[in-house]
Design a protein around this nucleic acid. Sequence first.
RNA 1: GGGUGAUUAGCUCAGUGGAAGAGCGCUUCGUUUACACCGAAGGGGUCGGGAGUUCGAAUCUCUCAUCACCCACCA
Length: 914
Amino acid sequence: MKLEKKFDASEAEGRIYRQWEESGAFKAGANSEPGADSFCIMIPPPNVTGALHIGHAFNNTLQDVLVRWHRMRRHDVLWQPGQDHAGIATQMVVERELAAEGQPSRQELGRDEFLNQVWSWKEKSGGEIINQLKRLGASCDWSRNRFTMDEGFHDAVLKVFRDLYDKGFIYRGKRLVNWDPHFETAISDIEVEQVEVNGTLWRFRYSLENSLTYAHPISFDSKGNPSGWEERDYLVVATTRPETMLGDTGIAVHPDDARYETLVGKTVRLPLVGRSIPIVADEYADPTKGTGAVKITPAHDFNDWDVGQRAGLRAINVMNPKAEMTLEGNLEFLDGCEPAPEALTLDGLDRYDARKKIVAFAQAQGWLDGADPDQHAVPHGDRSKTAVEPYLTNQWFVDAKKIVGAAMDAVKSGRTRIIPDQYAKLYFNWLENIEPWCISRQLWWGHQIPVWYDEEGNQYCALSEAEARAMAGGRVLQRDPDVLDTWFSSGLWPIGTLGWPAETPELQRYFPTDVLVTGFDILFFWVARMMMMQLAVVEEIPFRTVYVHALVRDEDGKKMAKSLGNVIDPLELVEKYGADSVRFTLATMAAMGRDLRLAESRVEGYRNFGTKIWNAVRLAGLNGCRMSQGFDPADNREAVNKWIVGETVRAIEAVDRALDNFRFNDAANAIYAFVWGRFCDWYLEFAKPLIGLGSTERVEETKSTVAWVIEHCLKLLHPFMPFITEELWAVTGERERMLIHADWPQLATAGLVDEQADREINRIIRLVEEIRSVRTQMRIPAGARIQLLAIKLDEASRQSLSKNEILVQRLARVERVEDGGIAPPDSVTISVDWGEFCLPLADVIDVSEERARLAKALGKAKEDIEILQNRLQNPKFASGAPEHVVEETRGRVERRRSEADVLQSALYRLKTGD
RNA sequence: GGGUGAUUAGCUCAGUGGAAGAGCGCUUCGUUUACACCGAAGGGGUCGGGAGUUCGAAUCUCUCAUCACCCACCA
């Protein structure tokens, strides 16, 4: 075995990944024992248009850790991969590409040809994200890769639609929806995000009809009661959206608003339009907002729609799907009014142009009452980033209220567990207030709604046109042109990928799935809907555990987004530091329930960790450390060897416990602390002198133990750092199987933890630390070999010391250890909790410095003793605290006392010796 | 406006009732034949402020401050 000084990740990663793939290591059930438990994770399918961002890297690292861990435990593992067809995103990408290449537009191509273009784009560019996941080391069963527009998946989607339709959970209706004028489609509530804008609040005067006037209060006394009035023949309304006035069909005032009570039931004349509209009383009007009188535009505002329904006001749509004004020939608009000629010049204008022009008219014609700057939130489409328009159209809805119960019960009863708990709260909160889900989209790329209409407008929901025609008695039918919301199909991801509606073996074996690993940003979009839909369709939960992880944010805590330019490209990090380093970093940052901010320095630190273990293996190799035939760590005689075996077992336990509880960071940190802090820093240094002894039993045992511990380190680390560990696995022995399929260590009950050896070695460690510290403080040259005298030791300590003398000599760089002497004058005293030592250094030490050192240590010890003493003397402590805490405190005070005694007498000696 | 979370070392973050931690950075020393992507020894924190519960609080409660995110809000 010959190893370079460092692991060449860029060379090795591709090669190792190919080995895994070619050997079928990722396949469902690979390495499983007959009759093993199954373990299934569904990947949150990335968009086909997607490029791997740091959030994907994080999400998939956690999944891969779990998957590899279970696979090594020989469970029957399936990690189901796939991509989402991402309706809007993909259609947008392809349209943009067509435009860039000077090709005909979507509309010019027509539906069928455009869809061909999308498919060929998907064939060409849609697999990129898979390659990127592979770079990361993701061990998905790629042979089962699915796409949400696959034929089989498509069939499942249509069947679900029909099932839900037949059960009355899906209906069509003309309702106000959030309309995205850029993509010209409806979107659902949760695809809308509020954006704060600095706008203007305009006030308009609408004339009262029939020569009506009223007294409007304009001044108030100190108590706030009106004291001055003005006679008005108009009513002032305030709006941030003047263009919607064209569709006004009423004015609402609060029923208790004294200012306007004489006006309720009267009418005003709408400027420009000339429509006569009523003043109605409605609780919605808030006397403290605006002027207290609010214009009502039922067709372009959700609240106004409700008011309109209550007051019987008409809803007049004044825009087309592009959010341009449509007035000419708009029968609804023209009905019952004669617009001024100026009004018709607005026809066809974009809503914002119309807004400007209307304000200009108002000013010119004297009905602009005023304007004030106003900051308010405007709803925007989350993909188009343009302001959405409440818009009255025919759409399909899932009556979510009818299917939400089972989804809530499943979590309440604990059949599905959401962790951390806080997200369960969020989940309930959203489901309790759920609104109908608008699932139709006026797009082409997606699952076309399986409904046909006859000439009379009757609808037939069927899985095929032939079936629909049969239902319609052979009438001429036309298919609904709309497609389904992408989240409708991804809501079926668990059963859809496992072959439903067929009764496949995979469905039998892996459903319900075990864990869903996801970010909280799609808790509503995806998780809640999967719960609802799976339960509605197959009456079974889709997963037993939902692990919700943090979002990766930039250094300012902002969500990373291309538009913000704060994206960290995980592949750049992979190229620079290797996939293992990136994975390990992400795992250590997976503390539950928090956002995480990524600092590149940490990736570098964990890259160094990889190099560290690489070199530990090198050291072992250079010393010919191999496990001897039939080596059993339980037979070890040497205390250090027993000790490190016990530490290994503890590390394994810590990792298992952490992963059982999805504490990825605890698992990663436990491995790190063990491999670097225990194994490399201490054990390997102990092993060096032992191995140097020549060919004895002690040497063989130590060499075997080194190899044994390394093997366990590689196994423990493999789920986190699969590449470097697989590489080292191959060079450290003749292997029957690759590490990915090696047996996860199960040693909890093997009785390998030896308390006696632990105590012994921990004592040695403390002594070495103390000697090193003193050496530095006394500025003893590192190369200088000095003598160590044991002054006061009990019999047990004396034995531990003599057995491990060689370790102390080497690590503390002392020449020999002499026992039972009396401290010579001007020596340096070393006090540990198990004995007193000294370094005779009369010619080297500065007595006053040594005195200061001792005094400082003594002071600290006395301080501690006092604190602990007070605690023990408090009767409430003795009675209130648990037994073991009291015991521990007693032990601590004892140890500190014996240390203090040593320091005290050393100080005394120095003084008298002076 | 409603909700959730955060505030711990210079920076990025762990730690949820019993001795303040990690990585990076900083200081000093080091060619001890695995590793300078290293080793050794250090410095650095009244755990955002205040009050309370408790024998004991970074941890639980209340309160204030600041920040972030989610939901609602286009008069």
